[in-house]
Design a protein around this nucleic acid. Structure first.
Lengths: 229, 229
DNA sequence: CCAAAAGTGTTGCTGATACACCCATGC
DNA sequence: GCATGGGTGTATCAGCAACACTTTTGG
């Protein structure tokens, strides 16, 4: 590639930072790490990394996410590019923030220890370095907005989930209670969930039926989103 | 600033590209330029420029927009960061795309000539360099989505505008006709427009009353958006 | 038998849509 | 007086919100 054409222009360090959302059945959480290098070593931070010449920011974000979680094929979406000249105290770094949705149960305790990572309830995020708090806030808003019209909530749940747990998830995202009957009716009326015969018996005597999200039924519905809640 | 901490990482050229929307009373248009430098000189392109060490991408986008239009304080919003390794044939360049909304009547013919710029109807965008077509498509979608809940349509109109012209604008953005009575009722019911005594007489015998968008009334309404259409 | 969570219908209201005629004016 | 675009009201329908009791079962 002939880079000479542009050689008179400034080159800048580009990073990615990942807001990793997880749901434990009750609460919506974000995965943070204790930063392992200077500056700001030892402070809480989003997981991030620099973008190299030979990868896109999408690729860099997937790589960073894999480093922390060992996971591949995670739902991930670009959030925003943060570029204030002074956002990073140690030098000029532009950061492209991404948010990811993972099933918290799949996340390995082992990796958590290795990286000094911890899940934080979204209302109890500690002080974060640089502009990471702003990133988390924006990600939360975006998630809330997105989940209204797109079937991405399922990314936060196990493959088999119960209607009460799905409702808990939406309540956690919206931070407000929903009516059980209205919720059930609406979500089932979309015709995108398959009911199993099996029941989940951990969280109640009676037990709640498992459901599975049916991607095919969904994609037949609408190309451009459906009102979920 | 101590940039040494990060010195082992790659530095990358970062650019901004602007999708500039305008509305001529009937049609929604985008401003494109004939690219004045290699590579791809002479081809149609979005207006863009490189981000320097001492400016944010927001600042760079505002600068670039000012270069082309001579305008300041234009509505502008970050769209997406495009970062495919091969997106620019001449080298690795990451581009942060922005879209801007301007009142087309304010745009100087003079500058148009200087930059070999032209307004194109959104359904008649010519072949563009690199991934610029993709940027335009995404911007159009984002505008459509945004305008549903936020009062940004007014940025595309003169300060004084008529209800028919406002309706034309929404029809152009949605690419579908709206019912005049329903449109009028809904938009007036928001209580954010002030009717003037004056009439616009260019486009009809009868004349249509001018209205003005009242920012104060709007901001009292809701912090977080209202359903416009 | 009791505690705890799952499951299930109806009603009223609000907002969305569909639709047609008269008005004002310049020519 | 006629052609052009501006302005206005009503009826129907669909979707949303509010609301409480019965079922199941482990202990």
């Amino acid at each position: 590639m002939d880079i000479n054409k542009y050689k008179s222009h400034d080159r800048i360090l580009v990073a990615v930072d990942c807001i990793i959302f997880g749901f434990d059945g009750q609460q919506l959480k974000a995965l943070l790490i204790k930063r392992g290098f200077e500056p700001e070593i030892g402070k809480w931070s989003l997981m991030g990394g620099f973008v190299s010449q030979d990868e896109s920011t999408d690729e860099a974000a997937a790589r960073v996410l894999h480093q922390l979680t060992g996971m591949h094929n995670i739902y991930m979406e670009q959030l925003h590019c943060f570029s204030d000249v002074k956002r990073d105290a140690a030098g000029r770094v532009i950061s492209v923030a991404y948010f990811a949705l993972i099933n918290i149960a799949d996340y390995s305790e082992q990796l958590q220890l290795e990286h000094e990572a911890r899940w934080f309830h979204l209302n109890k995020i500690p002080e974060l370095i640089f502009d990471h708090k702003e990133m988390v806030t924006l990600a939360k808003e975006r998630l809330r907005q997105k989940v209204t019209n797109h079937p991405i909530g399922f990314e936060l749940l196990p493959e088999k989930f119960t209607l009460p747990s799905l409702q808990n998830l939406y309540e956690a995202i919206y931070e407000e209670p929903l009516d059980k009957r209205n919720f059930t009716r609406k979500i089932l009326s979309l015709g995108i969930l398959n009911k199993l015969d099996e029941k989940e018996k951990e969280s109640s005597r009676k037990g709640a039926f498992y459901y599975i999200f049916d991607k095919n039924k969904y994609s037949k519905l609408h190309q451009e989103g459906v009102k979920f809640i």
